[in-house]
């Protein structure tokens, strides 16, 4: 028994170190983002705490030898691309998952083909797409060649989320709606969709975040108008400055706020139902 207890401690300490290993770089990056500017470099010691590099990211700092991050338009592009990708891959994910509710011949082939989209490395897919675009004579653009690959990548995630949701879905409510004289299309709108909505929300979150951060596929197929990750990758080549750290902190916060918005939307839809219910209970008592 003693051995188990000591094993528990060893593993516990190991896990704590592991978490430190996971988060260490973030913490260090966060600290260094408050380095003094513009002379302070991307390393310790902190000369003086300042928010200079954050101002630098937003273009508020006076011009200096450190070039501003090329993020303005890139950010707009990335957000637009992520939004379009989210819409298309969520719609396709829902449709495909809906089809998978009934067994059909060839379902295994279709399933694995779709899943392949999230497994095949971005480099390979990007390369293949470039080859095709080059042969067909299509110009490479973030809104064309890169967009279709973003959907190939995020659509399997949306599909898997919806598949899991439909697995727990009780079909009898749809049958009840049909037997009340409601058409299949309206049944989907008024019954199926409201019930699967939390799943749709998760699928959207996945698609948006993955597309927003997508990098290897876009590198090949994005063309000359860069998206955010490509712009950042471009700065890797040259000497790095703490403005990248400040940007890293901001973009991490952005990822988390997306997660938070998702959480709020989800709680709201649950609470709304509860409120409508509890309001009535007060009437009774």
């Amino acid at each position: 028994m003693d051995k188990v207890v000591s094993l528990r401690w060893i593993l516990g300490i190991f896990t704590a170190l592991f978490v430190l290993f996971l988060y260490g770089p973030f913490i260090v990056m966060g600290i260094l983002s408050f380095q003094q500017g513009p002379e302070g470099g991307p390393q310790f010691p902190i000369i003086e705490w300042s928010s200079y590099w954050y101002q630098h990211v937003f273009g508020l700092a006076p011009p200096s030898r450190v070039a501003p991050l090329p993020i303005g338009e890139a950010l707009i592009r990335s957000l637009t691309l992520a939004f379009a990708t989210m819409v298309v891959s969520t719609v396709m994910g829902v449709l495909t998952a809906q089809a998978f509710r009934r067994p059909f011949k060839g379902s295994a082939v279709v399933f694995y083909s779709v899943i392949l989209g999230m497994i095949v490395p971005g480099v390979l897919l990007g390369l293949g797409m470039v080859l095709i675009a080059d042969q067909v004579g299509v110009a490479r653009n973030w809104w064309s060649t890169a967009f279709v690959l973003h959907v190939v990548y995020t659509y399997p995630f949306a599909f898997l989320v919806m598949l899991a949701i439909f697995n727990r879905f009780d079909e009898s409510v749809e049958e009840a709606s049909l037997s009340l004289g409601v058409s299949p299309a309206k049944t989907f709108r008024k019954v199926t969709f409201p019930i699967i909505f939390p799943g749709v929300l998760s699928a959207m979150l996945f698609a948006f975040t993955l597309s927003y951060d997508e990098f290897p596929r876009t590198l090949f197929t994005g063309g000359s108008d860069v998206t955010m990750p490509i712009a950042i990758y471009g700065t890797f080549a040259v000497e790095i400055h703490p403005n990248l750290f400040a940007f890293g902190v901001l973009s991490t916060l952005f990822s988390f706020s997306l997660l938070a918005i998702y959480g709020i939307l989800l709680t709201l839809s649950v609470r709304r139902q509860r409120q409508r219910a509890s309001g009535l209970q007060e009437d009774i008592s």
Partner: peptide
Amino acid sequence: GFVQQKYALF
């Protein structure tokens, strides 16, 4: 009309 076994309420 079809009243289902497990009610199937919305």
